[in-house]
């Protein structure tokens, strides 16, 4: 089947935030920036405190039972019919596209499918549901964006990052060579096949550096951690930041004043 057209909902009053475990532990400021951006759009953000992990690590390791057990506890957390926004492409992809497969043929199949349809990538949600308008209050800067493979190929939202960044007048967006190529993260792949993953990540960091950007952004914490980790180990001046943190910081009024 060809890629289906994505049908976006109208802008809601409330949304649920599924923060993801990597944001929770390593990039909470990205989650908070997402909340700030949504609230500024007049949307109330509900953060269910009982959320843990979407189950992806087990799922991609072939451990379906464990993945299903953990995913099942997430199914209970979003009782109202509000959208569930996720600040990470791969976790959004897990919930939107893999949950229906994971629960297929189980008693939770229907619930999983209903939840899946409500799951959105947060950046995409800002663009296509909130139709956000950003005003740049920052100094001129050059930015490279690394779109995760999940955002690009699984979620099909590769356009949302550039759409957001292009609203910022002082931001020059540059594109690295082989922009669509994977950064080599891939969860357990980075550990099981550390040498291949390392080679991919090293190439991606080189491509990003060659753009001459001041920093690179991503919406996926896995990619971010991977690439920032390589850059740091190689002592390269290539800071990385979550797209949402960057957007929030740059679009606050009178930040400099």
């Amino acid at each position: 089947m060809s890629q289906p057209v994505i049908l976006y909902p109208n802008k809601p009053e409330k949304v649920y935030l599924f923060g993801t475990c990597l944001v929770d532990l390593f990039y909470p400021e990205a989650g908070l920036a997402g909340v700030d951006l949504l609230e500024r759009e007049g949307i109330e953000v509900i953060y269910p405190q009982d959320q843990t992990c979407c189950g992806q690590p087990a799922y991609t390791s072939g451990r379906s039972d464990e993945a299903r057990a953990v995913a099942k506890t997430q199914l209970d957390l979003f009782p109202e019919d509000w959208p569930v926004v996720v600040p990470s492409g791969s976790c959004a992809g897990m919930m939107r596209h893999q949950y229906p497969k994971l629960f297929e043929g189980t008693e939770d199949a229907d619930r999983a499918l209903k939840l899946a349809r409500r799951v959105w990538d947060l950046a995409d949600f800002l663009v296509n549901v909130c139709q956000i308008q950003l005003t740049d209050t920052g100094e001129p800067t050059t930015i490279a964006l690394h779109t995760s493979c999940s955002s690009r190929r699984e979620m099909g939202v590769a356009d949302s990052g550039p759409a957001l960044l292009r609203q910022l007048n002082n931001v020059t967006l540059v594109e690295p060579a082989k922009v669509a190529e994977c950064c080599g993260f891939g969860g357990s792949f980075a550990v099981r096949h550390a040498d291949i993953s390392g080679a991919m990540a090293t190439d991606k960091v080189a491509a990003l550096t060659q753009t001459g950007c001041d920093r690179f952004l991503s919406t996926d914490c896995g990619c971010l951690m991977n690439l920032a980790g390589v850059a740091k180990k190689q002592k390269m001046a290539l800071p990385g930041e979550h797209l949402l943190s960057f957007l929030w910081h740059r679009s606050q009024p009178n930040r400099e004043a």
Partner: peptide, 26 residues
């Protein structure tokens, strides 16, 4: 961290979790 740090620095945990931050915020 095994193969991870062969090519990368170890990732640093944030000072607070998003759970705590959201709890404080509410």
């Amino acid at each position: 961290l095994g193969g991870w740090t062969r090519y990368r620095s170890a990732p640093k945990l944030a000072k607070t979790t998003l759970h705590s931050a959201m709890n404080n915020r509410s």
